[in-house]
Amino acid sequence: MTSVADIMRAQAFWVGPQQTAAEAARVLLTRNVQDVLVVDDRRVVGLVSWHDLLSAVLPGVAVLMQADAVPDMAALLAMAREHVHVPVADVMHPVAFTTTPDTPATRALTLMMASRFPFLPVVDDARQIVGIVTLRELLNALFFPATPRASGHS
């Protein structure tokens, strides 16, 4: 039976809780992802998303942007610059689910459906992070086993 160990990627990336919102945003941009894990001393302590970062650096703005209100870009940037040093620890939210390398792939899929995140952290017996498993690779492994493993992003 396929387990997480067969499909996880070991070269996971993350941010630390004391890194700033700006640094986390740079990770999201350069890695082209929507969320990034927050890891402290190799332990998963949370997850931070675009929405978390936007509401942190643009207090009071993010909700209105959903209503498609278009502000003055320069003023927006000035406001964001005032807040980009907020630590990630202040804006992250908890991670509800983790897997281990032994977790069956089907169980990992169930956990992803429950968490609604397209990836899960993989931790070892000491609860230290050893990688991540992505929905894309999980689906490939479970339903399209002949397809070469995608090397794309989570």
Binding site: L58, G60, V61, V70, P71, D72, L76
Partner: peptide
């Protein structure tokens, strides 16, 4: 009240 420049709900 919304700040006209930033679009922030103030």
């Amino acid at each position: 009240v919304i700040d006209r420049r930033t679009g922030a709900l103030t």
